[in-house]
Design a protein around this nucleic acid. Structure first.
Lengths: 222, 222, 222, 222
DNA sequence: AATGAATGAGCGTTCATTCAT
DNA sequence: TATGAATGAACGCTCATTCAT
């Protein structure tokens, strides 16, 4: 399973004669943002790539800000769905589930979409509270998924330890995904990095000791 | 030691009137980029925050592109210097050195500068080969530093294993830094995350087995 | 018949609001160029004289260069049409036809339009290949018209003699037109100059001898 | 003898260490105007080609307008001198003198300087009374020279006839010079045009009849 | 639902000019 | 003399937006 532009579009289905206006525009906006960056995502360009005229976008979206917000909702909503879908269809073995999730996230980083989109989102989020909230919600959901698996893999852990471990793994994987993802110098190492990440984080979760969030004298592992 | 805006503007000449124009402008441009994002970094805004007029920026930088390039060189050059400085003043214990480096990177993420600047750079790099090259060079240097420490900590590792481990740790830390860095929801967890990251990655490097990049039957730790 | 600004703007569409934008803008641009020179023909000035705002010009012409090119095409196209129209409605007597053409060109020089426009075009042409080509094409057509009349007036002439005579007369008339045309010190002499030019060039063509481009022992006239 | 950039420069001679500031700047301004047109003749460009800085031009010329005026004075002054020099060293035969003058003017048109400079001057003159006066004065002097020769060649002519003939020939030659001069499509015809122009205008002057400025029933020639 | 016309603000840039040094 | 710093206006152009049709 991968995140794709098409996944962002379906909404309620039923396409009258091609795509619904909103969807077509959002889909096009997304592709412009991915291919040329947010700064190149002008209404004119979106319109041109839709086969529409610039002024017509305003019919669907009152302002560019509205469009951006709808776009963000679409993107993060789609990721939320994908995460939930993953959680449902996961098997029984918690170690396997964690590895699957790690591999899923890093595979996503190999797509142009993820590797080019997320830096834009992060940059936007730093200066736009709405974007920040959207992105945060998305990651909170992902974090919850990690927490569930970690709880299965090491049931002895306390709440805080579990949360922190989830955040560490989640954020690390995001880093690896955009650092060694699509188009990057380190892209060819991704296969090895996936295996390493699986081993590293599975071992870490297994080795964690409950009671103290951080073993002050070093972990007992090794 | 931290990276700060001031570190970027070391030279202080004996010029006629006030500080050297290039440095003042670059310093201001950087602060605008950090505080308001690249898309808000217009020549007029930089000029206004410098107390200059828009046209005067062109006196120092032939074009905005020139300014951006000089800015990039300044930023990455400064980070390169900081990394080298760290390498030189490190002690003897490789484990301590690795932990220091990990903490250093995550502490940097707690500064607004790093947390807000790097997403902008990554976004820019995806659509501007020059930025990509600058950022890459910076990370290659950091990667080299990690490799040296890893080689000391686990001398049995082969070249590829060592390189991959360095990339995994470096990119993970970048992810954690911006994910749980300045202004983010997870910022309050950063102390715990630092300790966890130290334990996780030190254990991982120690546990790595030479010969096969990944121990197929699970790591021997724990 | 005279060339006038209005002649440049023949088409009159049934558009929604007012005249067609392209034509209005080109017409205004022309009048600015005539009244104030090419260097004063800024988009803002054209817009202001149109009752538009500067940015709106870019809606009709992608760039100023595009506008200039369209303007050139309009000007030279209109002259080409006028020349053809003249050729068609000419009578039978070749001497009369030549005199008519001479008078036509010099009368044109008495209009502000011609007297002020052509020096701008020549200056532009020297540094802009596109303008040079446009202007050249226009003059080649005029030259052809002269050649036809000369052939009738002195059928014995060879190709080269005829061409050279046409170029001599055409270029001389252009010189007289701008030298003693609208607004010049010598403007009051134009009536006399027209008669003189007619006599001079008609006599010259009649007196030309075939075989050698130039009669080395002086012309046989007088 | 030709007009050349160097001819414009000598002034009072004695060059201290290279050229005097005024002269160097004017000379450079002229070459910029010829090579790139008046619209490209910016103070910055002149300064750069002089090896000076832009602000320094203002030390020599209070304003750009001052510079342009000095430049015009230099150009037309130099042409006036050349015309006088020609008049002095001319021989006895009036026909030869007229032909020499015609050839001189057309040869001048074959230089880039004349062919590129004069259209700029005419364009400027139409919108700047000072330039207009300068250029007019220059041509009045040339006209005087033509009148003298015509008086010798056809002493029976009245004042007005002589003046008009001078204007006709002078303006025609200016037309031919820039029309078939340096860099133009018709440049290769210039040898033939020189001969034709000599024959045409010499014959015309000789054939002119006194008493009526214009023979109302056609000239008696042919 | 869709377009073309129009606006106003802002962009990066260039220019002539001023002025202290 | 000569320079570097600085200004303010204008340039061509792009943008989001509005609105009548």
């Amino acid at each position: 399973m991968k995140f794709s532009v098409d996944r962002f579009v379906p909404r309620e289905g039923g396409y009258a004669r091609g795509a619904d206006g909103h969807e077509l525009i959002l889909k096009t906006a997304l592709s412009v943002m991915i291919d040329h960056g947010y700064k190149a995502m002008t209404l004119r360009r979106i319109a041109a790539e839709c086969g529409l005229k610039a002024g017509h976008i305003s019919y669907y979206f009152k302002s560019k800000d509205d469009l951006v917000r709808a776009l963000l909702k679409m993107i993060t909503g789609s990721y939320n769905e994908a995460i939930e879908a993953m959680a449902e269809k996961a098997g029984d073995d918690p170690e396997k589930k964690l590895k699957n999730l790690i591999r899923f996230m890093l595979e996503d980083g190999r797509t142009k979409q993820a590797a080019y989109l997320f830096p834009e989102l992060w940059a936007l989020a730093n200066h736009d509270p709405f974007v920040q909230t959207c992105v945060e919600e998305m990651y909170v959901a992902e974090q919850g998924h990690f927490e569930e698996i970690i709880a299965e893999l090491n049931p002895a852990l306390g709440d805080e330890d579990r949360k922190n471990a989830a955040v560490l793994i989640l954020s690390s994987l995001e880093g690896v995904a955009i650092f060694a993802g699509y188009g990057k110098t380190w892209e060819e190492r991704m296969d090895a990095l996936e295996e390493m990440a699986c081993d590293c984080f599975v071992a870490f979760v297994k080795a964690m000791k409950p009671g103290d969030a951080v073993a002050t004298d070093g972990l007992s592992i090794a």
